[in-house]
C-alpha cells in the first residue's frame, strides 16, 4: 500500500504541538496555584511528543530530540531527591520546602518556592518515563 500523504495532519500537528508545549509548560509552572503541576505538565509534554510520533515517524523525532529519556527520568528523580536533601543544609527535616516573594525586574512581585524545583524533578521523571515507554514499544518490531 502506498504511503498516504499526511499534509493536513502534519501541518495542523505542528501548530498543535506548539500549543501543547506552551500549555504543558503553563500547566507545570502554574501548578502551584492552579490545577496542574509537575506530573500533569510532564505528561502533557510527553503527549505532545507522542503527537509528533503519531504524525511523523520515530526516526525523525528521535533525530530532533536526541536524548536518552531514561537518563532524563533519572536526572528528574535525582533533582527531586536532592531538593529534599538541600533542606538538610539548613537543618530542617528532609523535603522541607521554602518559599518567598521576590521582586524581579520584569515579572514584578514573584513567588519562588523550592517546591517548583521539586516539581521540575517530577516533570522530568514523568517525561523521561513516558517517552522511554513509548519509544521502546514503538521501536520493537
Amino acid at each position: 500500500m502506498k504511503e498516504p500523504n499526511d499534509i493536513i495532519i502534519r501541518s495542523v500537528a505542528k501548530v498543535a504541538v506548539v500549543i501543547i508545549f506552551t500549555f504543558a509548560i503553563n500547566l507545570f509552572i502554574s501548578g502551584h496555584h492552579y490545577p496542574g503541576g509537575g506530573f500533569i505538565g510532564g505528561l502533557a509534554f510527553a503527549s505532545a511528543v507522542i503527537l509528533l510520533f503519531l504524525t511523523f515517524d520515530i526516526e525523525t523525532v528521535r533525530k530532533n530530540i536526541p536524548l536518552d529519556f531514561k537518563m532524563v527520568a533519572a536526572i528528574g528523580v535525582l533533582i527531586a531527591v536532592l531538593t529534599g536533601l538541600g533542606s538538610l543544609l539548613f537543618d530542617v527535616p528532609f523535603l522541607s520546602q521554602a518559599f518567598g516573594y521576590f521582586y524581579l525586574p520584569i515579572f514584578g512581585k514573584t513567588e519562588l518556592a523550592t517546591a517548583v524545583l521539586f516539581d521540575i524533578g517530577v516533570a522530568l521523571a514523568v517525561i523521561g518515563t513516558a517517552l522511554t515507554i513509548i519509544m521502546s514499544i514503538g521501536d520493537d518490531r
Partner: peptide, 20 residues
C-alpha cells in the same frame, strides 16, 4: 487565556480529527 486557547484548539483540531 486558557479558555480562549481551548476554543482555538478545538476549532483547529476537531475538523482535522474528523478528517483523519
Amino acid at each position: 487565556i486558557r479558555l480562549f486557547l481551548g476554543i482555538f484548539f478545538v476549532f483547529l483540531t476537531a475538523p482535522v480529527a474528523s478528517h483523519v
